[in-house]
């Protein structure tokens, strides 16, 4: 399968560790992918404001990927993944919207005539590459890691369309972490939202929600967090300092992307995995 690689706004703007580690891991396992040229926002952040603009932006990615000869789109953000995945389902009974977005797409010589398959990095890791291959490639078991998985809402919901994992009992991140030698038991707050989407509406409350999730992970004995989505990762990782200030508590806990955990278990160089951009104090745990 020839994937068109779609990075999305957050990863390409400052969450470089997500893009860097994803590229390294996908390349390592021989996934055939190349960047979709001229890519723009997936539309997700605009959906609640201007539905037609969301549909246009999502359709633009599909139209570009098809025109450039890709068979599927690979995503490294849950928001992008859902937006691109749900487009055809949402437009099914809205020929008027399809007509409008095609009028707009025509300005750039593009046309939307249906979506390509969309694959989240979690699906590529779990289904394309598979646990067996990952297990065989492990060189340095992640002994001592007790890692809290955070799937992110858009990787598991809604149940009306296919998502990378089960909507109430997802397991794939944990299964991968366990294969790497880490412990990743389930916890009652597993499905709780990181609240990244309300950061622009009420930042203090949004940080309270994310800070409390990290706090409870600590209380439950986890020593690290695994994310697959840059929005979640910002909330539960990069924003730990400011969330700690909002709560008046220490909510510092090493947060890394799943692809970085895999890279560490493969014995890859930390810088090659973009770990220098994770500012949540992973050094002690990783070098133990």
């Amino acid at each position: 399968m020839k994937y068109g690689f779609f990075t999305g706004c957050t990863s390409q703007a400052d969450s470089y560790e997500n893009e860097i580690s994803s590229r390294v891991i996908l390349t390592h396992y021989g996934i055939d992918f190349q960047d979709i040229e001229d890519q723009s926002c997936c539309g997700t952040p605009i959906k609640t404001t201007k539905h037609s603009m969301w549909a246009f932006l999502a359709a633009r990615v599909h139209a570009l990927a098809k025109k450039q000869g890709y068979e599927a789109i690979a995503t490294i953000c849950n928001g992008c993944d859902l937006s691109l995945s749900e487009l055809s389902h949402e437009l099914e009974h809205h020929p008027d919207v399809v007509e409008l977005i095609n009028e707009a797409l025509a300005k750039e010589g593009l046309h939307y005539d249906g979506s390509l398959p969309v694959r989240n990095i979690l699906e590529i890791l779990y289904e394309d590459i598979g646990l067996e291959t990952i297990e065989k490639s492990v060189k340095k078991k992640l002994t001592g890691f007790v890692t809290a998985a955070h799937y992110g809402c858009h990787a598991i919901r809604p149940k009306t369309i296919k998502r990378p994992d089960n909507h109430e009992q997802p397991t794939h991140i944990q299964e991968i972490l366990e294969i790497l030698g880490a412990k990743s038991p389930v916890y009652p707050e597993l499905l709780d939202c990181c609240s990244a989407t309300t950061i622009g509406v009420d930042a203090e409350k949004a940080l309270k929600v994310s800070g409390e999730k990290v706090e409870i992970m600590k209380l439950r004995g986890y020593n690290s967090i695994a994310n697959i989505c840059p929005f979640c990762h910002k909330q539960l990782g990069a924003s730990q300092d400011v969330a700690g200030k909002v709560l008046g508590k220490d909510v510092k806990l090493p947060a890394m992307y799943l692809s970085q955990y895999i890279g560490l278990a493969l014995g890859m160089d930390e810088e090659k995995l973009g770990l220098q951009f994770n500012l949540t104090g992973w050094e002690e745990l990783v070098n133990k």
């Binding site: 390409q12 703007a13 723009s40």
Partner: peptide, 19 residues
């Protein structure tokens, strides 16, 4: 929306801090 209109993305690529 203003950012997407200007450059296609909600945030522009910028400097990121390292350890």
């Amino acid at each position: 929306i203003r950012a997407v209109k200007a450059n296609g993305a909600i945030i522009q690529p910028r400097e990121a801090q390292t350890t």
